[in-house]
Every structure is written in structure tokens, then in C-alpha cells.
Design a protein around this nucleic acid. Structure first.
Lengths: 149, 149
DNA sequence: TACATGTTACTCGCATGCAAGCTATTTACC
DNA sequence: GGTAAATAGCTTGCATGCGAGTAACATGTA
């Protein structure tokens, strides 16, 4: 490996840095971060998941999820409630009214971010980039493929 | 945007997660992290840079760099020394013997990580992925283009 | 029923990363 | 020479992210 730019770890890290920055700026007016947007997006699709299900869907550690849910509960976008089935090991996470109302504006904001990058790359290069990223992201990830609940 | 997987921020984050994980495991026997490898790689090419130059080359904040250099100095891979030119605002960062000796084994370890991902993707898809990532990484990054020193 | 095993979510410690703000020093300009 | 502006590197505070360990609870099995 000659240059630092020949190192996949570095190149993908810097690309992610740019995408995260653009996303953070697009979401900032709503007080939401990119990872928090991902949690909301999952809950907009199916409300009332527990922590383990969110970890599985977002491919995150439970230690990370605890803090995320804490901050989003404090922010007023979601809340923990006891499992209706009576399983006292877990709590289930439900959107608040505020969290539910963000669906349209946040999706639109993130659509604009995506569109911006697709425009810069061109449709063909963007499509092949997506395929490459998904191939890498799905390496040795089995949880995401298994059904939730 | 329908699925979470249609969100560039999410997909690139998960891909980076996998690459970082593979890199971290490859570097772990040497006690070095992926970002620390990047610093070493820059110093192997040109020793004695100051903090600002490292920030510029790695596209990192000075607050991040301070901690990184601290930990790598503690680890014994590099050391801060006064600027030979007498500029007392900065210190220059030099490799220790230990840091210099890691060049060959760490480069080989990271070459294996790169090769593994290229193998999974296939050469053509890997090449187009690299082009896409570099295009994104270089958006609005001017510092990296400016000469160092 | 009793016990082993699995599951869930939590804590702590550590490593990135950025924003904002600070001090010390150097440089540029009048 | 003297002052404004730029530069370097630091701190604090916050948000991810993981590893390791723990306590509470649920489940499967003898």
C-alpha cells in the first residue's frame, strides 16, 4: 500500500465523514442526529420495538442503544413503556406525538441529502457505489436478515 | 425514501463499521487502532510533522488530534519534540524506534484487509467503489489539496 | 419444583469525532 | 515599535461506538 488513500479503512472513513456532516447539517434544525434519524425511521415503520430489536435492525451494540434511547426519550421523540406481554426484562419503545410528526420533514430533508450526493456522482456511479457499500455492509451480518419478532 | 437501506448515511455507516471492525482486528495484535495506523502511515512517509499538518492530512479536528497524539505518545510509538525552527506555538511529532519498526508488519496486515474486501467485491466493483468513495471524500475538502509545509 | 441456560438492558471504561472557546505565540501591517 | 490578525494546540462538553461485565428475568429441562 503506497498512499494512505489506498487504504479502504481511511477512504471509507473520510467518505462517511462527509456524508455524516451533510446529514447532520440537514437534520440539525430539528435537533436530531443521523443515528437518531435511523431509529426514528425504524419506528415510523413499526412502532413499539424493544431495545434488542432496535439493536438488531440498526446493527448496534446494546451499550450504544441504551444511551441513544435515553437521549431521545429526554428529547421527547419517544418513550419507554412496559411490554404489554408482561416480559419484565424489556421495555418497548414508542414514538411520541413529536416523534411521529417528524416523519415527513425528516424524510424530505434526508432525501435532499441523498439527491445531492447522487447528483455529484451521477446516477450510474451512485448506483454502483450503493451496491458496493451494501455488499460490504452485509458481510457477516446475519441478524439483519433474520425476522424481527 | 422507503427503506433505511436507501439512506446513504446509514449504508455508508454500516459499511464503514465492517471495514473498521476488520481493520481493528488486524491491527489489534500490535496495539494500534485504525486511526492510529493512519497517523503512523503519514509519519512513515514524512517524519516530524506538527499537529496542524497531521490534522490537515488526516482531515481531523485539532481536538481529536490532541488526544490521539497523547495516547500514541503514551503507547511509545511517537513523541512530541520542540520545533527545530524555534516556533514555540507548536511541537513536532517524531516516530520512536518502536513506531518506525511497525511499518512493515502493519502495512502487510492492512494490505491483507484491503485484499480481503477486494476479493469479496471483485476487482471491477472494488475499483468503482473506490472511485465513488474518493469522489465523496474529496467534496469540499480543500486542505488536503494544499501543500504541507 | 429446582436448576442451568438464555435473554434483556444496564453500567463502566475507553477511543474516536466535532463545536466552542481559550491561551500563547507569531506574523502582518500601520 | 506597536497592535491587529492569524496560527497552534489545548480544554470542556457532548454524541457515537465497542468490549466486558452484571443483575433481573424468562425459559427449558431434569
Amino acid at each position: 500500500m503506497e498512499r494512505l488513500e489506498d487504504c479502504l479503512s481511511f477512504v471509507i472513513g473520510k467518505a462517511q465523514q462527509q456524508v455524516t456532516k451533510a446529514s447532520r447539517e440537514a437534520l440539525a434544525p430539528y435537533g436530531v442526529t443521523p443515528v437518531q434519524f435511523a431509529i426514528l425511521k425504524v419506528l415510523w415503520e413499526r412502532d413499539g420495538l424493544n431495545g434488542a430489536e432496535l439493536c438488531s435492525r440498526l446493527v448496534l451494540d446494546s451499550a450504544t442503544m441504551t444511551g441513544l434511547i435515553d437521549r431521545m426519550e429526554t428529547g421527547g421523540w419517544l418513550e419507554r413503556r412496559a411490554d404489554p406481554g408482561g416480559d419484565r426484562r424489556m421495555s418497548r419503545v414508542y414514538l411520541t406525538k413529536n416523534g411521529a410528526q417528524l416523519e415527513k420533514p425528516l424524510n424530505e430533508a434526508m432525501d435532499r441529502v441523498n439527491a445531492q450526493f447522487v447528483k455529484v456522482l451521477g446516477k450510474d456511479r451512485a448506483a454502483s457505489l450503493w451496491r458496493g457499500l451494501e455488499a460490504i455492509a452485509n458481510l457477516s451480518i446475519t441478524e439483519r436478515r433474520s425476522p424481527i419478532r
